[in-house]
Amino acid sequence: MLTFRQYLRPQTLDEAYALCQKRANLVLGGMLWLKMQNRTVDTVIDLCDLGLDQVEDLGEEWRIGAMVSLRTLETHPGLAASTHGAMADCLCHIVGVQFRNLATVGGSIYGRFGFSDPLTLFLALEAVVELHHAGDVPLADFVNQPYERDILTHVRLPKHPGRVAYLAQRNTATDFPVLTCAVAVGESGARCAIGARPMKACLVKLDLPESITPETAAAAGDRVAEQVTFGSNLRAGADYRRAICRVLVRRALLGCKEEE
């Protein structure tokens, strides 16, 4: 059961930041994971009054506020165009519309959950997180950092990440994924993120020859599968994850190729 002493909506980020420095306090995301916990919190900090619910077009980048819902991302035409539809592919299997209306970008990315679909995609897209105190941190670094008492205010995504494909394997349509795979092939090279291993997603640079062929894609899939560490949970064992990792990487790469 959850117990809060008080609920506050700070009016400035500084105020929110100051509040979150206390160990007994907590920043509220979508509430979806928090409400299942059995804990006592002194002050819950709701960022809903800070205007963090906007998706901004910065020209070369999208700047997504921490309070933007996953459903907003899923249905955003600009993000769909930037990611060749991968944004919706990545989000549409998360529980249901009502859930995605509540789940926030900030909660998903700050949480760095092992099962996270958006974490996987955002890693491949070379996202940058904006922390109120620490400033800009590449997601690839942030993902492995300890849970600092800072406030994630925005996530920035490049507007032209290249060709993108997102694939996930699930045991049922809206379950946690057994494995997630995002591939982006851009001018700066090809990147692949593998998540739900079931550990949190990791980024792998792909060393690809000029053109993606079934053979080069398969070889890349094999390399990723050998390179990445997998574990076991209720949904599948490590061997199975490794086996399908090859397949998803290859298919995602070929998916990128098809878009050429």
Binding site: N171, V178, A236, G237, D239, A243
Partner: peptide
Amino acid sequence: ITPEKVLMGMQGK
């Protein structure tokens, strides 16, 4: 009948 049982069965594991 999970995907894992099917695939690992197919691969003889």
